[in-house]
Design a protein around this nucleic acid. Structure first.
Lengths: 333, 333
DNA sequence: TTGTAAGCGTTATCAT
DNA sequence: ATGATAACGCTTACAA
């Protein structure tokens, strides 16, 4: 049904190869025919068949965006990243294809590689073990890990500076005189997010404050679980005077529990989050956070991936983007 | 580089057509060879080339998701919709491809149709004029409009029930005794969102309250503009005792201005939003809103589109999904 | 400068 | 039940 180069060639009485060359602006075709071909193509509303072109070129100009977590839990987190990635991709003639749950087993991901339906992958995963990375490299499809650092010499990643962000947060709290600082975290073993925790312990050590494991509580996420973890902290014999939540959405739940207890923030307990999500700004008091350059992370991941796609010998790109401490009412109200 | 059916055929000493048939589970191939082929394919890590298959089948199993607005402005709005759509698509063997700005002119969209890089389109647009719809229909690529009703007999859409949602909101405010109700809206002429406004005027009329145009103020969106519109309303000789913002994000800005003025919500002025975005729940006081089934809208749009793709004579699917009034502190605190 | 033809990896139509 | 072969629409090496 759609117009093909053959239609154009018949229309003009030239060969299809001439049409192809003319449309692709090759040098070895006369200006005159180039002109004619392009005009007729335009007039007939010709657009090249993506499938045919993909098959021939062995490229799809598409980038796979693979989530292994529920997208919707982190609305602005993902929306910003996707917005940045999509824009950057389109500016470079590519499109983003979304995938979820390809990562439960390595197989799904590898199959995705083999179908060659995308030219490369961006992985938005909580945790990317070597057991996934190695076969991925063997597969030869370029990929970039987004938002997570990974200890693998051949893997590219674009990540926010979790360590220094958490460190800035700790310095801030310490400078306010806090010495008992709670840390409400996602299970550390499951995550590559250890950087935030490392900054926590390092900052304490630097300040000469002994580490107290009872101040570190875990939550699997979800309002219930976040609430439970918070109560665990507040019910300590000597409760903390400040707390850091692993990210802003947890912080919001923590805040709710604290206020329900009739405690004042920051007077009775200071609170900080992480990521710079909108939610942290909307609640009362607004929550001090560390802002990630989400849009930029999306953009740069695409840029990095495109470079890997262009040049197969491109050495891994590993970038840590600066983050920014945003001091708000919850710590210095 | 990747394994092809030819590799498998050589390995087994059968023809490629037999391999193809075996892999596609056709009837006319012996159980024995089917078994052998599948085992070898498995062992060799075969996955069919998407490009080749697409070219041959004239289908890509991909759905285009086209935004003509900045994705990030509405983080949870889009995240929920995308999450629903992606999940639904994957359950049916399809994937979502994201596009932005294809809609500034009809051309970009039509070109997208012609390349056949997706089997159908879901349009997430503020406004879809007939000037866009008609050529789209002529192009023959199935499409569904998401989140907007459209007056076109041949266009499919999945939309929340804007009229009844706004009506429920008005009934609620009227039942609280309000008679001067402000309406802070996006420019009505530019949008198909007239339904919300229609409910506003209808509700007034039903209640025997004369329409006062000074109570309807426009904003282009953005904090500045929302703030200006709010002030316009508050500065009226006789200000309203209640206000409806076009959506929750505007409502949040409106709330900020009201509180800055030292007015109490809802005692001095009641406030309601629309859409059911997270933001409306996080602010203090929480904002009464009308919750859209965002995830379901995403899912059903995909379902509808898939049906159109399956069956080219599928009559247009036009669905209005029920919404739910969520009464919160901002109207009945 | 232009045309011919091979090939990208499938699927589908014919024979056998 | 299986094999040869022709598409699908494009790009490109090779001929003319």
């Amino acid at each position: 049904m759609p117009v093909t180069i053959e239609d154009i060639s018949k229309q003009l009485g030239v060969s299809i190869s001439t049409v192809s060359r003319a449309l692709n602006g090759k040098a070895d075709v006369s200006e005159a025919t180039k002109e004619r071909v392009q005009q007729v193509a335009q007039k007939m509303g010709y657009q090249p068949s993506a499938a045919a072109r993909n098959l021939r070129r062995q490229r799809t100009e598409k980038i796979g965006f693979v989530f292994n977590d529920a997208i919707s839990h982190f609305s602005d987190y993902f929306a910003e990243i996707i917005a940045g990635a999509t824009t950057e991709a389109e500016e470079n003639g590519h499109n983003i294809v979304l995938y979820t749950n390809k990562g439960d087993s390595a197989d799904g991901l590898l199959n995705l590689c083999k179908t060659r339906e995308v030219d490369g992958l961006i992985l938005v995963w909580n945790h990317v073990p070597s057991a996934i990375i190695d076969p991925l490299i063997a597969e030869g499809l370029p990929f970039v890990i987004l938002g997570r650092r990974v200890n693998h010499p051949q893997a590219s990643y674009i990540t926010p500076d979790n360590y220094n962000g958490a460190m800035a947060l700790m310095q801030h709290l310490l400078s306010l005189g806090h010495t008992r600082i709670g840390f409400i975290t996602r299970p550390l073993m499951k995550l590559t997010y250890v950087d935030r925790f490392a900054a926590y312990t390092d900052a304490l050590e630097n300040a000469g404050i002994p580490f107290d494991s009872s101040l570190v509580v875990e939550t699997e996420g979800g309002k219930e679980c976040n609430s439970l973890a918070t109560k665990q902290l507040l019910d300590l014999p000597v409760p903390p005077t400040a707390a850091i939540a692993f990210h802003d959405l947890i912080a919001v739940d923590v805040l709710t529990v604290i206020l329900e207890r009739g405690l004042r923030v920051p007077q009775d307990i200071a609170l900080a989050g992480f990521d710079g999500l909108n939610a942290s700004l909307l609640v009362k008091p607004s929550i001090t956070t560390v802002k990630q350059p989400l849009r930029e992370i999306g953009e740069q991941s695409v840029q990095a991936l495109l470079r890997c796609i262009e040049n197969s010998k491109q050495p891994p790109i590993q970038k840590t983007l600066p983050v920014q401490l945003e001091i708000r009412e919850s710590t210095s109200g």
